[in-house]
């Protein structure tokens, strides 16, 4: 199946693309998709995905995921043709 992933700043500067198509044979959850992306784009990317505790262990997510028009939970399954947008947890001045 194909999933379209959209990147906003600062993700787009790391991926060097505003969006990309991810092809996968098996059904993925949001958390699994994020793991795949972290593997591909490395530590810089991971820092905007996860929250870390004082011992640098992952303790949660700092990214907001929009699936099509809705807020997705990390254990939601992604279907063929879904559009996923990665948004950093927003502060906004």
């Amino acid at each position: 199946m194909e999933i379209k992933v959209h990147y906003l700043s600062p993700f787009m500067e790391i991926t060097e693309a505003k969006n990309e198509i991810i092809k996968t044979k098996k059904e993925l959850t949001i958390a699994e998709l994020l793991e795949q992306l972290v593997e591909r784009y490395g530590e810089r990317f991971a820092k905007f995905i996860y929250r870390y505790d004082a011992n640098k262990q992952i303790e949660g997510y700092r990214v907001i995921i929009k699936k099509n028009d809705y807020l997705a939970k990390k254990d939601d399954f992604i279907k063929d043709g879904d559009q996923i947008t990665l948004i950093t947890a927003i502060i906004g001045g």
Binding site: L8, S9, E13, F48, I64, K66, T88, I91, G93
Partner: peptide
């Protein structure tokens, strides 16, 4: 270093629009 430092809070415009 890859967020507010280079861009300031303008970084959040697109994300805020999305939500």
């Amino acid at each position: 270093k890859e967020g507010y430092r280079p861009h300031g809070t303008a970084l959040d415009l697109m994300g805020c629009e999305q939500v």
